[in-house]
């Protein structure tokens, strides 16, 4: 029996349809998005099926085209399929209300990701729009803009302390307090928590989780209103923010 890895909101639908797949000589195996090193374990996968739209955070999210990009970039030989309740004829789309006679035949005629521009739109929230806003250079919805501001202030302060040996009280007043870094950190974290749930069904969610963990590590420095000098250096706040920026930038360059 051939195997198909799948991603779904929960197990209800895959379990219900597994009988049909088995009758077609295919077995369904859930794929964990949350694997090690920021990537889902797809190396042994030949066919990946997404049940779309992905429901999370009380919103239906259309994740299919980010996955399409991801598969094209990292696993171009994987056959990517989607399944849902929209009515659409696409070589790689399974209409759950009108399943094909032969899955074998359907798979044989499905196209590789390099052969088509996009997956059929599953009708939910277009996650690319969220990513775009997340990565916008400026504005009330940009996370990277706010992160850039916090990073700049922390970098200036760290340079002052480490290189120029300026008194910390002077740095605190001139950089952190004069520029309201605590408020900016609060805005940054608030935006982060608003965005994070939307990205749960995405292939690079593990990276977001890593970023979340790093932000938690340095949060005490800001919660103490940046007043504790040893936190700035001891927590490696600048270096950690740099890692956060780098991790997010890699995703932004490819998907935003």
């Amino acid at each position: 029996m051939k195997q198909i890895s799948y991603i779904a909101t929960n197990q209800l639908l895959p379990q219900a349809i597994s009988t049909w797949f088995e009758a077609q000589n295919y077995s369904l195996k859930p794929l964990s998005i949350h694997s090690e090193k920021g990537h889902p374990q797809l190396s042994n996968t030949n066919i990946l099926l997404l049940f779309v739209p992905f429901f999370h955070n009380n919103v239906y999210i259309s994740i299919e085209n980010v996955w399409k990009k991801y598969v094209a970039l990292h696993y171009p030989n994987i056959l990517l399929l989607t399944a849902g309740y929209i009515k659409h004829t696409h070589a790689n789309y399974l209409d759950l209300l009108q399943l094909p006679e032969s899955l074998e035949y359907f798979i044989k005629h499905a196209k590789s990701v390099s052969e088509f521009d996009s997956m059929p739109f599953s009708g939910g929230l277009i996650i690319e729009n969220k990513l775009q806003k997340f990565y916008e250079g400026h504005g009330d919805e940009s996370l990277t803009d706010e992160l850039g501001k916090v990073y700049r202030m922390v970098t200036i302060a760290t340079d002052e302390v480490k290189i120029h040996h300026s008194p910390y009280i002077e740095v605190l007043e001139n950089i952190f307090q004069a520029n309201h870094i605590v408020d900016k950190w609060s805005v940054l974290i608030n935006r982060w928590h608003n965005y994070l749930p939307f990205f749960k069904g995405l292939p690079f969610f593990e990276t977001f989780k890593e970023v979340d963990a790093i932000l938690k590590q340095i949060a005490p420095f800001f919660e103490q209103e940046c007043k504790i000098e040893s936190h700035l250096i001891g927590f490696n706040v600048k270096e950690k923010l740099h890692i956060v920026k780098q991790k997010l930038e890699i995703i932004g360059r490819q998907y935003a």
Binding site: G137, D145, L147, G148, T155, I156, K245
Partner: peptide, 8 residues
């Protein structure tokens, strides 16, 4: 220069 990529 990108504001978010500050490096002295």
């Amino acid at each position: 220069l990108s504001k978010s990529d500050y490096d002295f």
